[in-house]
C-alpha cells in the first residue's frame, strides 16, 4: 500500500535514486511533448497550438481518476496524500503574477529547465531570472508576509469546497475536459497556422 515512503518501505537513499528517475521521466515527457519550445507553449494563448492545455488537462484527469481508483482499491492511502494548502489570496495573486510571467517569458519553471537542457538560451535566461525572482521574493518577504498567509483555508480539496463527492467532481471535470478538447480542436482549425 502506498505511498511507499510514507509507510517506510523505501529507504532515504533509494528515495533519492527514485527522485532522479522520476525527474528524468518528467523531463523526458515534457520535452517529448514539446514543452521545451516557448513558441509551442505560448501557442495555447493565440490558438495555433493547444499542446499545453491538452497535456495539462489530460495529465490532471488521468491522475485524478487513477488516484481515486487506487484509493478505492486500497493500493494507496488516499487520506495521507499531500494536499496542497489553500491560501485564497496568495494563490490568486501568485497565479496572476505567474500568468504575466508565462505570457511574457514564454515558459514556466519546469519547461524552462527542459529548454535549458537542450541548449535553448532563452531557457537559460529564464531560469537564471527565476533564481533572481526567488531571491527578490526573499528580500521583500517581511513586507508581504501578512498577505502571504491571508485567507488560510487549510488543506482543503475542491470537492469539499463545492460540497460534492470526489467522484461527482471528477465526472463533471471529465466532461468539461472533453468539451475543452473539442473546442480547442475546432479553434485550431480556424486559426492561421504558425510555423516555427
Amino acid at each position: 500500500m502506498g505511498p511507499l515512503t510514507y509507510f517506510g518501505e523505501i529507504s532515504t537513499e533509494w528515495n533519492y535514486v527514485i527522485a532522479i528517475f522520476i525527474g528524468m521521466a518528467f523531463g523526458y515527457i515534457m520535452e517529448a511533448s514539446g514543452f521545451s519550445s516557448s513558441r509551442k507553449l505560448i501557442g495555447v494563448f493565440y490558438g495555433y497550438d493547444f499542446a499545453v492545455i491538452r497535456v495539462f488537462i489530460t495529465a490532471t484527469l488521468v491522475a485524478i481518476i487513477g488516484l481515486l481508483y487506487m484509493g478505492y482499491f486500497g493500493w494507496i492511502d488516499y487520506s495521507v496524500l499531500f494536499v496542497h494548502p489553500t491560501f485564497i489570496f496568495s494563490a490568486t495573486i501568485g497565479g496572476i503574477i505567474m500568468g504575466f510571467g508565462f505570457i511574457i517569458g514564454g515558459f514556466c519553471p519546469g519547461t524552462s529547465l527542459c529548454a535549458l537542457a537542450i541548449g535553448k538560451l532563452d531557457g537559460w535566461v529564464f531560469t537564471i531570472a527565476l533564481f533572481i525572482g526567488i531571491f527578490i521574493y526573499s528580500l521583500v518577504f517581511p513586507l508581504i508576509k501578512p498577505y502571504y498567509n491571508m485567507g488560510d483555508m487549510g488543506h482543503i480539496t475542491i470537492s469539499e469546497y463545492l460540497n460534492m463527492s470526489n467522484a461527482w467532481f471528477t465526472f463533471w471535470f471529465a466532461i468539461i475536459a472533453v468539451a475543452i478538447f473539442y473546442v480547442t480542436s475546432v479553434i485550431r482549425k480556424k486559426v492561421k497556422e504558425v510555423r516555427y
Partner: peptide, 13 residues
C-alpha cells in the same frame, strides 16, 4: 479517449 475518460469518471460515481 473521451469515452474512456468520461466512462471511468462515471465509474467512480
Amino acid at each position: 479517449l473521451a469515452v474512456v475518460f468520461i466512462g471511468s469518471a462515471f465509474g467512480l460515481v
